[in-house]
Design a binder for these strands. Sequence first.
DNA 1: GAGTGGTCTAGACCACACT
DNA 2: GTGTGGTCTAGACCACTCC
Lengths: 261, 261
Amino acid sequence: MSATLPAAVVPGADASASKDPAAPAFSPLYQQIKALITRGLQSGEWRPGEAIPSEAELALRFKVSQGTVRKAIDALADENLLVRRQGKGTFVATHAEEKTQFRFLRLTPDDEGSGRGMSRRFIDCRRQRASTDIARVLDLKAGDAVVQIRRLLLFRDRPVVLDDIWLPGHLFKGLTAERLSENRGPMYGLFETEFGVRMIRAEEKLRAVAADEATARWLDVPVGAPLLSVERLSMTYGDKPVELRRGLYDTSAHYYRNELS
Amino acid sequence: MSATLPAAVVPGADASASKDPAAPAFSPLYQQIKALITRGLQSGEWRPGEAIPSEAELALRFKVSQGTVRKAIDALADENLLVRRQGKGTFVATHAEEKTQFRFLRLTPDDEGSGRGMSRRFIDCRRQRASTDIARVLDLKAGDAVVQIRRLLLFRDRPVVLDDIWLPGHLFKGLTAERLSENRGPMYGLFETEFGVRMIRAEEKLRAVAADEATARWLDVPVGAPLLSVERLSMTYGDKPVELRRGLYDTSAHYYRNELS
DNA sequence: GAGTGGTCTAGACCACACT
DNA sequence: GTGTGGTCTAGACCACTCC
């Protein structure tokens, strides 16, 4: 049997055109399978924490070999969309049941041995209209509804991070300070289970800034103290931005860690 | 034929013990092949920029199937130790011929459209004895020889980064300010071609700090201005630390970018 | 034991680069 | 055309989990 595009061909792009001059660019089978699985994740066919069908079953469904399904799943596991567990199955990744609270927080205390000790305190949660800045970044129209959250992270009861968070209002109807405070576990877990918004990926921009008066009060540092400013844009499926977060970190007893390779 | 450990078994760990209670932990074949290839890289059998033997040839040499070699190479390519080029071969990664000068520098100007414009200026390069701090981090004894380099990075002739770099003296004999200045291309390329030290991986610790007087002069900012402090520890094969770098970044017109996933 | 992912093999063909 | 990596297949067996 030839290896050219069985039943699984993804109906995209130039299905009509007979001979595009520019870019036919047909993708390998396993990438098409990957796209099909991603679609299943996005549509909610398999929900976070659940198992997806076995490799054999997916191979049957898509009419390809198990090896091809395997390569597609491998790629999705690399991107942290799926989690493989030998002997049990392949599961949709979730923020909801993670031991690692603060999975995306790259802040580490100077004295390593400490381990836990992070807590949080919600200061504010309100609905308002998006400024042009916020709207542009979140791919909204200026004036659209947004939810703004302000919160503090504390390490051993000392404030370390002041976060301002903006979310598209239409995706987070009914999000209140109460809902946030009641929630045990990661905030992204709440977003996932209560609002069906799953964070896949994020970009951060870091700078050093001086503490203004209000910030200095919240973080209990002198006005003008150097703070690490972390601006995070989080994306869901299809690289759609769904959260903007501006954090100010007091790095006098913590550092932001990063790996290069 | 059974799939259990052909001729390629890596002679490691518990080759002697008959039945360890704790951890026999034999690794899959492709990981053993990966280790063998890594050894070839480390020993200089294949040098940076050169091609390694074809998959078929390696499969013959190691007495495994091409698929197994492929998986080993895939892993090494993921770690940026090898670079695959379809139709040409698989090459040892190198810093020497990289278009991307400053591959590890995560600093981006606020006005994107700018593109190039980074230049550098070496201020100092001297041999001295390692302080206890530096020695500990670089895995040396206090008092061992180290090379210290100080340099400035400029963007459009404006100073942006002040770097202090420490290198183990025994690995970098004969490194002088002249050698550094004459060198076109990445500094890590020079380390690679002239001293046989290849940077594989690095860890960075970021904090916000206030500019002291000397730094303020070099970066042309007010004393006390907030600066991004970036402490980088670079590793070569076997995770051996071979460079410590402390950078101070003026982030008033640039930001440090990072990806989370 | 049944079901799952994990490893390994062998062989076919495709896409690309050089010559 | 020859040689390289890239994709796809089919089947075998191993390792782990749960019943």
